[in-house]
Design a protein around this nucleic acid. Structure first.
Lengths: 179, 179
DNA sequence: CCTGCACTGAAACACTCGTTTCAGTCGAGG
DNA sequence: CCTCGACTGAAACGAGTGTTTCAGTGCAGG
């Protein structure tokens, strides 16, 4: 992992990264542009380039920030049986407060598939690995991959249709079969 | 559905749409640009704008073309039991020949979630509806939503990791439970 | 022949983009 | 005081964007 920009670990960098992260959660990463972003978080394109090296460096930092949020979730999970774990994960995924993060997550996932190069590289594969590691602790294959698929598929469905009842019932049915 | 551009149903339009569709399957929709596209399919930005009205009109037409490919698949499915249907769908999804189309599909899905306006609007919700209609004919809720989730989740996994064996086993395990 | 219509090429317009150049400001260390 | 390095503002650069304007083709129907 190479150093991005000049002020690699500076507090100002962390501060701006957090502000940019909040901005990106609202507006998405797809047509992110330095000038509007800088204006809204009280900075300038010049400074962002100085601190992150390039726009790609900034995007990588933002994606890293999103993955950190994901890892925090996975680390703070209650230990228990497979069915309980699945229900806890779905509760988190379905929470309206996490909607923005998950939309960003889907966007990054999609882009990583289409453009294997660029700042997105590896993002999709990394999250599969992270989640599978957690599920693999309580479920053998192929049940772990299947459970991950149910969670991710139901999440896509929920984000597109907003139907928390139907998607929640599908996850619950799968969890019940694991008890 | 309003008319896009001047030559709404002209053969030249269909021809260029098909060429543009092939181009987009290879390069993705994310940073599609008129000048490079036009050059590669033997046309000009001027003509694309004339036939499709605007870039957004072209993108809408391309997304419509992708959805048509999806509907063709769903219409040509062998009638049978739920387990057989699931296996047939997965066989199609996992086929390397369809990899490009499915990447495009994930890309459109992700963008539609982040930008509810714009040419992508409704794309994500529409495909959920299409697939659920097919699965709903052989499975009651919540099993239909669950089966859709398994297929979509396993597809995301496959596209990210390329692990056809693991993802295929997960879908097979789910199908076996439906028999 | 002529008019109209579908279509196209070249060039320009009015941007926005990421990035660079240059000229600073500011506080800490010697 | 002076210098050094972290940081920043203003402006410009060159490239690329979707779109428009204008001036045509070439071919069908009258």
């Amino acid at each position: 992992m190479t150093v991005e920009g000049q002020g690699a670990g500076s507090p100002r960098r962390e501060e701006l990264l957090e502000a940019a992260y909040a901005y990106v959660l609202r507006r998405g990463l797809a047509d992110l542009s330095l000038r509007p972003l800088a204006k809204e978080i009280g900075s300038s394109p010049r400074v962002l380039l100085y601190l992150f090296g390039s726009k790609d460096g900034l995007v990588r930092a933002l994606l890293g920030r999103a993955r950190a949020a994901e890892l925090t979730l996975l680390a703070g999970l209650p230990a228990g049986d497979a069915a309980g774990l699945l229900r806890a994960l779905w509760e988190w995924l379905a929470a309206p407060a996490h909607r923005d993060l998950l939309r960003l997550w889907v966007e990054g996932y999609g882009r990583a598939l289409v453009e294997p190069d660029g700042p997105w590289a590896g993002f999709a594969a990394a999250t599969v690995r992270d989640w599978l590691a957690v599920l693999g602790r309580v479920l053998p294959e192929p049940a772990a991959t299947e459970a991950l698929a149910v969670l991710r598929g139901a999440l896509l469905d929920l984000l597109a249709t907003g139907d928390a009842h139907r998607t929640g019932a599908a996850v619950a049915a799968h969890a019940a079969r694991l008890a």
